[in-house]
Amino acid sequence: MSNALTDLLAEKGYLLADGATGTNLFNMGLMSGDAPEMWNVEEPEKIIKLYRGAVDSGSDLFLTNSFGANASRLKLHGAQDRVHELARVSAELAREVADTAGRKVIVAGSVGPTGDIMEPVGTLSHAAAVEMFHEAADGLKTGGVDIGWLETISAPEEYKAAAEGFARAGLPWCGTMSFDTAGRTMMGVTSEGMVDMVEGLDDGPLAFGANCGTGASDLLRTVLGFASKNPALPIISKGNAGIPKYKDGHIHYDGTPELMGKYAVMARDCGATIIGGCCGTMPEHLVAMRAALDSQPKGPAPTLEEIVSVLGPFSSDSDGTGDGGAPKRERRGGRRRG
């Protein structure tokens, strides 16, 4: 199915996505505990600055400020009745930036987890989850996004509910999960398991992958796990800018622009074709990633040892699959986002 994302990916071969949302907004004055989505209407000039930061740094695709725009999240701020409005406005601001970029830029409507645990472990029903995702997706579509972008999901049940919500809204989408527990998502999904899941969906994504999680090394090991299954869909890699460090009352990420440039090239070599950053990734990181991707040709998939030597050690010995070893490959070659 042809759409803006698949057409641009076919034209360019790989795409640079954006970086962090939260990190950048905190640097603009957002306070911990505040809902970033409220800034779409209260501080629109700052949201436009966030979007333009990604576009001016060379991103081919950027996400809207709508990660927590669902009834469950916004209820914490007394704004559960404003989901559609806040999602729509986030998209309208993004559309303005993309349409004045002077080149083709994809607007992706960010959709994060509900924050509730789904049945049978929790109390959130499938029907209620589908409606939450549908409401967000419809607002984003009304505001003009090119695609939806599900991210930081850990439960397969929630991923599937989101797929149904996007389908009801008639919005094509991409979706990533966060592999942050010894190579698995918090709810136990492995890289191989995710491939099986997305390929079995009736209303599946245009592309899939991993975001956030722990360090960039772990995320690339997950990408290798995806690639080992030879999936038909494009792979997304959105890793954090290094490892979080607590300093002077704030979280800082230790990844330098140079390191993120190396990460971007290695992500492409691992098999990803949509490559960006997550927590801690600033415009200067994106500039370095753009330069590295544009100046270096695609190479063979790196070994695990090569990933460690360039990006640092894994956070766990296991990638979450098999008996605890590396992804089996026939050949060489991740509350709030960012």
Rank of each mutant, 00 (worst) to 15 (best):
T176K: 03
G280Y: 01
Y263F: 11
E42M: 12
M289N: 06
T222K: 03
V189Y: 00
S191Q: 12
D116L: 13
S57P: 01
K49S: 15
T222W: 02
V145H: 04
A91L: 12
T123W: 04
R329W: 09
P300V: 11
L16V: 13
V223K: 05
K160H: 04
K104Q: 15
Q80A: 11
L201F: 07
G53H: 09
L93F: 10
A91V: 09
L233D: 08
G255S: 07
R184P: 04
T114F: 00
A136M: 08
G175Y: 10
A91Y: 12
G280P: 05
E192C: 05
D18L: 11
G200P: 05
G239C: 13
E157K: 07
N230Q: 12
G139H: 01
N70P: 02
D218Q: 08
Y14C: 11
R335Q: 08
G255E: 04
T6R: 13
A162Y: 04
R336Q: 09
A291Y: 00
E37W: 02
R52T: 07
G204M: 06
S154R: 00
Q296M: 06
A17C: 13
A291L: 00
G255A: 02
G148F: 06
M282S: 09
E305N: 14
G213P: 05
A4P: 13
F314D: 11
V130K: 11
G29M: 10
S315P: 00
P257R: 00
E119T: 14
G261Y: 01
F62Y: 10
D196C: 01
A91I: 11
V83Q: 10
N40T: 05
S178L: 03
D60E: 12
G320T: 05
K46D: 12
V41F: 07
D180H: 10
G225D: 03
P120T: 08
Y159R: 07
P231I: 04
G312E: 12
R95Y: 08
V55G: 11
G139E: 04
N24L: 14
A326E: 15
K160T: 13
V41G: 03
I243M: 14
A169L: 08
G109H: 09
M118G: 07
L124Q: 10
T190Y: 05
P231E: 05
R290M: 11
A161G: 07
V189M: 13
D269P: 00
P234C: 01
E135V: 13
V121K: 09
M194H: 02
W149R: 02
M31A: 15
F26L: 15
E119I: 06
L25K: 07
M186E: 14
M266C: 00
A35Q: 06
A264H: 01
G299K: 14
C278E: 03
L63E: 09
D203M: 00
D56T: 01
T100K: 15
M289F: 01
E305I: 04
L150Y: 09
R95L: 14
D317R: 13
T23N: 10
N65M: 04
G22Y: 07
